Simulated scan of single mutants.
Amino acid sequence: MTQLNDTSSVLDLLRSRKSASAKAMTGPGPSARELGEILGCAVRVPDHGKLAPWRFILWEGEARAAFGAALGRRWQALHPDHGPEAIALAQDLFLRAPVVIGVVSRAAPHPKIPEWEQQLSAGAVCMNILYAATALGYACQWNTGWLAYDDGMAAVMGLAPPERIAGFIYIGKAAAPLEDRPRPDPQALLTRWSPA
């Protein structure tokens, strides 16, 4: 492979996709039109029962710092023995990229559609966001972290049971060249079923 995130064809992008580190992102982020395109691609996923068991939260501009203040307060409440550096690290999480999209899974009991399938659909939404943002020339990374699993931050984000975070997608421009990593050999993971 000679180029990561090669957008010359769909297959080339699938073969070469590589996340960027949110710690090494800069601006600009996607425009309102591009965000519309990204989210339009995001919802074109398998969705058994047409439930749309997911929704989005967008952080951009000053909202990232305001959310960071809430992150800092929550971190301090959870870890009163941690010093200013740890609190600042929590506060700055969403300042790493110009845009962060939260994908909220709304998977819930259903008479016909298993919750697991609804959760998988939310994961597919996250992946489509990565592909769409990459295709538009942006660097992106899918993260979760402690805040995805914390009840206090769920309240700050306005999540209601049974909602939970499937992922935070950081989107911006790569501030450093991407480096690939070893990938598993798909043939080593493949078994062919045959009758006993």
Score class of each variant (00 low, 15 high):
I165A: 06
L159T: 09
P161I: 06
A175L: 13
A155G: 00
D180A: 11
I171K: 06
D185Q: 14
M153T: 10
V156T: 08
P162H: 11
V156C: 04
L178C: 10
P184N: 03
P177F: 13
K173Q: 15
A166G: 05
E179K: 14
P186S: 05
P177Q: 09
P162V: 13
D185F: 08
G167P: 03
A160P: 00
G158V: 08
R183C: 12
G172W: 00
R183M: 13
P161F: 09
G158H: 10
A155I: 07
P177V: 07
A176H: 11
P182T: 13
I171N: 04
P184C: 01
L159K: 06
P184L: 06
M153H: 02
E179Q: 15
P184W: 00
R164P: 03
P162I: 09
G172L: 02
P186Y: 01
A155M: 05
G158E: 10
P186A: 05
G172S: 04
R181D: 08
I169F: 02
P184G: 08
G172H: 01
A175H: 04
A166P: 06
G172C: 02
A166R: 00
K173H: 15
I171W: 02
A174K: 11
A175S: 14
G158M: 07
A155C: 01
P182N: 05
A174Q: 11
M157K: 10
P162M: 08
E179P: 04
P184T: 07
E163I: 02
I165R: 03
A166F: 00
K173D: 01
K173A: 15
D180I: 01
I165H: 03
G167H: 10
I165L: 14
D185C: 11
G167F: 06
R164W: 07
P184H: 07
D180N: 06
R181I: 12
M153K: 04
D185P: 12
P182Y: 05
G172T: 07
V156N: 03
Y170K: 00
D180K: 07
G172Q: 01
L178K: 09
A160H: 14
A160Q: 15
G158P: 01
A175E: 13
A154Q: 15
E163P: 00
L178A: 10
D180L: 01
I165P: 02
Y170Q: 00
R164C: 11
A154P: 00
P182F: 05
G158T: 12
I165Q: 04
E179I: 10
A154V: 14
D185S: 12
I171R: 07
I169A: 04
M157Q: 10
R181K: 13
A176D: 11
L159S: 08
I169L: 09
L178M: 12
